[in-house]
C-alpha cells in the first residue's frame, strides 16, 4: 500500500496535514461559539483537500485531484455556507449550557488521542504495517471520531450535534485518503453528495425545530421517554 513506502518528504507533508486537521477538531470542543465550529469545519475540509492533492501528487492517483476540487467545493465552501445559513436562522450564537465545560472536554479529548494512538499501534502491529504514516493516519481518524462523539454527547445545541456528525464523516474521509487512496472514485463522489443531502435535511429539521418548538437546544427535547 501507498503509506507503507513513502519518501520522507511526502510522509512529513501527510503528517503535518493530518495533525493540523486533528487539532482543528479540538477547536470545536474548546469553543462555545457556534460560528467557530463552522469555521473549524471549513478549515479542516480545506486541509483534507490539500491532503488529497498531496496523495495524488506523491502516490500517483490522478483521480484524487478531482476529489480534492470537489472536497473544496462541497466541504470547504458549500457546507460551511449552508451551516452559516442555518446559524443565521437560530436565535443563539453559542452553547449556553454545555454538559461539560470546554476545559474538561479538552482533557477528555487528550485522553481520546492517547487511546486512539494505543489502538492504532495495536492494529498496525497486528497487520504488520508499522510505518509512521499509517499509525498516524489511524490515530487521527480514530481521534476525530472520538471527538465527534464527544461533541454529540456533551453539547446541546442542535447545530453542535450536526457538527459532531460532520466531524465523524470528516475524520473517516481524512483517514481514507491516506489508508485507501485507491477507493473507487464513484464511492467518494456519492459520499460527498450524500453529505450534502444530509446537511440540507439537517437544515430543514432545524428550521422546523425553531418554528414549532421554539428552541434548538436538545435539552428541551425531553418529552419522549419510556
Amino acid at each position: 500500500m501507498l503509506a507503507a513506502h513513502l519518501d520522507p518528504l511526502a510522509g512529513a507533508i501527510f503528517s503535518v496535514l493530518a495533525i493540523a486537521a486533528m487539532l482543528l477538531s479540538f477547536v470545536m470542543i474548546a469553543s462555545r461559539w457556534l460560528k467557530d465550529y463552522m469555521l473549524a469545519f471549513g478549515a479542516q475540509s480545506w486541509l483534507i483537500a490539500l491532503l488529497s492533492v498531496a496523495v495524488a501528487r506523491f502516490g500517483h492517483y490522478p483521480e484524487l485531484y478531482l476529489i480534492a476540487i470537489l472536497t473544496v467545493l462541497f466541504r470547504g465552501l458549500l457546507l460551511p455556507y449552508l451551516l452559516l445559513r442555518i446559524l443565521r436562522r437560530l436565535n443563539v450564537d453559542r452553547e449556553m449550557t454545555p454538559a461539560l465545560q470546554p476545559s474538561s472536554a479538552l482533557v477528555i479529548g487528550a485522553a481520546a488521542v492517547i487511546f486512539a494512538l494505543v489502538v492504532a499501534e495495536r492494529i498496525t502491529q497486528a497487520i504488520g504495517l508499522t510505518a509512521d504514516v499509517v499509525v498516524l493516519a489511524l490515530t487521527v481518524m480514530l481521534t476525530i471520531e472520538l471527538v465527534g462523539f464527544l461533541m454529540l454527547s456533551v453539547r446541546h445545541e442542535a447545530i453542535s450535534q450536526v457538527m459532531g456528525v460532520l466531524l465523524l464523516e470528516n475524520g473517516i474521509f481524512l483517514g481514507s485518503q491516506i489508508l485507501i487512496p485507491g477507493m473507487p472514485t464513484l464511492i467518494e463522489l456519492v459520499v460527498l453528495f450524500d453529505l450534502l443531502v444530509a446537511v440540507v435535511c439537517f437544515g430543514a429539521l432545524v428550521g422546523f425545530l425553531v418554528r414549532e418548538v421554539g428552541s434548538t437546544s436538545t435539552r428541551d427535547l425531553n418529552r419522549l421517554v419510556g
Binding site: 465527534g148 462523539f149 454529540l152 442542535a158 450535534q161 450536526v162 459532531g164 456528525v165 465523524l168 444530509a198 435535511c201 439537517f202 429539521l205 422546523f208 425545530l209 414549532e212 418548538v213 436538545t218 427535547l221 425531553n222 418529552r223 419522549l224
Partner: peptide, 15 residues
C-alpha cells in the same frame, strides 16, 4: 413531539 422524534432519529442514526 414528532419533531423531537425526527431529530433524535436523524442524529442517533447518522452517528
Amino acid at each position: 413531539e414528532s419533531l423531537e422524534a425526527a431529530w433524535k432519529y436523524i442524529i442517533i442514526v447518522s452517528a
